[in-house]
Write a protein that binds this DNA or RNA. Structure first.
Lengths: 210, 210
DNA sequence: CTGTTGCAGTAACATTTGTTACACAAGACT
DNA sequence: AGTCTTGTGTAACAAATGTTACTGCAACAG
């Protein structure tokens, strides 16, 4: 497993820390669609993402959801950090966007390493910073953009994360992520197709111009 | 000044750290409406809030704004933390909601203390956590609530922060914070008055039932 | 082939929010 | 007093988004 850690986190962590991660971490492979974190659950270990992408959603009391952001290689889940450190409940839901490989680190180590390794501290702070920025960018989208631009942003974000200009999702699934209705998405996608920005087929959307 | 630090942060920080804060920090008093942080500016020191409240806004390219959250006694600005640590530009705008007292700490000390004091590290992580939660709650409001409920939430939040059931703001000012138009706010406030939840007067709104 | 199922297209309509325009009221200032 | 300025109330309309209902198509199972 050391191979996977090194290739992804070598420039970030000291050798000694890499070695520790290797000793206590466990490699976890999850398929697309796998639910990593349920809202309201307690978390026992934190994930370091090796490959693939994880999508982080917010869910309200009525079960309505909203995409917050994606995590990729080199990222970790900031909510997990604070859940572990403060032993709060999870406020979010995490689903594997693609097949993904993760290294799971037991939470006891987190605090220990925070004291011991400067690189780990920086990694933690940096993760928080990134997530805060992303949360604020999500706020920007919802507050300042109309649904058509949000949809376009969603589609381009998705092509980046999946490294594929073809998106394999139904209109209903997109509607859930953007917290709107299927009809609205179909309507707007049709307009985007007329503008030549996407090409629509059953179950797939091809993003043409980024 | 040591008095103010002790009374507010005594149970949070070690004596030694309190002493250091006392040595390098400077007390700053700002009047209501004072602009503490402009978007796009670099930040040279971080604020610890002693009294009063600070409102944190997001501003988009067109100058449209949106209230993110309030900071109160014992809080610090998470964006400042990450700006300092990563020397990024400010992504936000900060305005004194009430007259406020702050202790300004030079950024050089931040990293030093992060290594040196466990309580400081925890304070930093905790601040990030709180702000991330608040950002996500803001997302909830925008995404899941209609404008009338957002307005009601805004008003009750404001009474809490100001410790006063009477809000001294024009409808236009509220409209800016919620990123909508004055007419919409007037309309919805009128409905809230008809439901007996607020009492309207020129320049003031009295929140009746919390 | 035929029936079933899930997905997408579309119309018609409801609701929410945003915009424009104007009337009027409360203070502030001469 | 009269004259401004600023804040509020309201109507009428426009635009964006949400909802319901129905259509047909493609895939698939039998």
């Amino acid at each position: 497993m050391i191979q996977e850690i090194k290739s992804n986190y070598k420039n970030l962590f000291e050798d000694e820390l890499l070695e520790e991660i290797n000793q206590v971490g466990t490699l976890k492979e999850v398929p697309e669609g796998f639910e990593l974190i349920k809202p309201g659950s307690y978390i026992k270990s934190m994930p370091l993402i090796i490959s693939g992408a994880i999508k982080i959603l917010r869910e309200d009391n009525d079960g309505d959801e909203l995409l917050l952001y994606f995590l990729e290689r080199g990222d970790t889940c900031a909510m997990t950090l604070s859940c572990c450190l403060g032993s709060h409940k999870s406020e979010i839901k995490a689903i594997a966007e693609t097949d993904a490989k993760l290294i799971m680190v037991p939470i006891e180590k987190m605090e220990e390493w925070t004291t011991k390794y400067k690189s780990w501290r920086n990694f933690m702070f940096d993760s928080y910073h990134k997530r805060l920025i992303e949360a604020i960018e999500t706020i920007d989208s919802i507050a300042f953009l109309k649904m058509d631009d949000r949809l376009l942003k969603y589609l381009t974000d998705k092509t980046k994360v999946n490294q594929d200009s073809i998106i394999n999702n139904t209109h209903q699934e997109i509607a859930y992520d953007l917290h709107t209705s299927r009809v609205v998405i179909s309507r707007l996608l049709k307009k985007l197709e007329q503008k030549g920005k996407v090409k629509l087929n059953r179950n797939t959307i091809e993003v043409i111009q980024i």
